[in-house]
Structure formats: C-alpha cells, structure tokens
C-alpha cells in the first residue's frame, strides 16, 4: 500500500515535468504536441478503488494545468477519461473483463491495448482542444488538431509501454 502511494505520487510529479520540459516543445507541423501524461490512465491498476483513480488523476490534472496556465482544462479532461477508462476497455474488448480485481491492464494483448489507447486519447484531446477554444468556432481545426495529436500520443505511449513495462508483468 505505502509502496503504491510512493510510486504513483512520484509519477504525478514526474509526468508534468516530462510533459513540460520535453513533449511540449515537439511542435510537429507547428502545432502538434503529444500529451504523454495520460499514460497515467493506462498504467493505474484496476484493483485500486475507483475513488483513488479519480482523486489521483484530478491531482495530476491540476499539476499540468498549473504549468500550462490553463485553469482546469487538463483536469476536466483527465478526470473524464479516467472515469470511463474501464467502460471503454470493455467496449474495445467486446466482452467482459473477467475478474477485475486480479486483471493486469498491461497484459490484455497488443492490438486491444493500442485501440484502447487511441480511443481514450482521442476523447481526452478532443475535450482539451474544445475547452481551449471555448466555442464551436473553428471546429474543423479542433478536429484536425485532435486527430494528429491522437496519432502521435498513441504511438509514443504504445512504444513506451512496450519498452519499459511489458517485461515486468505485475510491476506497475
């Protein structure tokens, strides 16, 4: 239990720093920056209570918003996807998840995982860009930005999970 608090507390501090120092400066095509911090939603274990993921993603969102000076845009979007993440995983898998207390999200199979990451990223990025715009003005541009960023985020997160975490089965 205490080990988990340290582990995820460290992640909440590390992800905003990585996001700000490295990934907000990629500027692909001039405006596409991947939001890698949502990897939190994919690695947070299922056996934890739903309350704990809501509070931790709320905290992580606040840290990101503090650095990007955007009020609560990232907080809103991150809490939204963290609430619906298992619902979306069931939707992608097409069947029930089995025993949710013992399942490991990282072992669900590559294709399912990539599609899941893509759908969650799309919803998250769409909310972020829409709230940033704060109107339906220039809706096409918001969609384009969402599509391109989703592709980049999905690629980076899938690679990262593959390289760092797949081997250690129950590590995170």
């Amino acid at each position: 239990m205490n080990k988990d608090i340290l582990k995820y507390g460290f992640l909440i501090l590390l992800l905003p720093v990585l996001q700000e120092v490295i990934f907000n400066h990629i500027n692909l095509f001039g405006f596409v920056n991947p939001m890698i911090y949502i990897v939190f939603v994919f690695v947070f274990p299922v056996y934890k209570s739903k309350t704990s993921i809501l509070w931790t993603s709320f905290l992580l969102g606040l840290c990101i918003d503090m650095l990007s000076n955007e009020g609560g845009i990232h907080t809103f979007s991150l809490v939204f996807v963290s609430y619906f993440r298992l619902f979306l995983l069931r939707f992608v898998k097409g069947s029930s998840l089995g025993d949710e207390d013992t399942m490991d999200i990282l072992q669900i199979g590559n294709s399912i995982q990539v599609v899941w990451i893509m759908i969650v990223s799309f919803i998250h990025h769409f909310l972020v860009y829409l709230l940033e715009q704060f109107s339906f003005h220039r809706f096409g541009f918001v969609l384009l930005k969402t599509f391109l960023t989703t592709i980049l985020t999905t690629l980076l997160i899938s690679f990262a999970l593959q390289i760092f975490l797949k081997k250690k089965s129950n590590a995170w």
């Binding site: 809501l54 709320f58 969102g61 918003d65 955007e70 609560g72 845009i73 907080t75 809103f76 809490v79």
Partner: peptide
C-alpha cells in the same frame, strides 16, 4: 471533481 475543474476553467476566462 468535474464541477471544480469547470469552475477553474471559467475563472481563467
């Protein structure tokens, strides 16, 4: 939590 986040968004506007 969503309500709190939304208030923060409104404040920046």
């Amino acid at each position: 939590l969503e309500f709190v986040a939304f208030i923060l968004i409104f404040q920046t506007h």
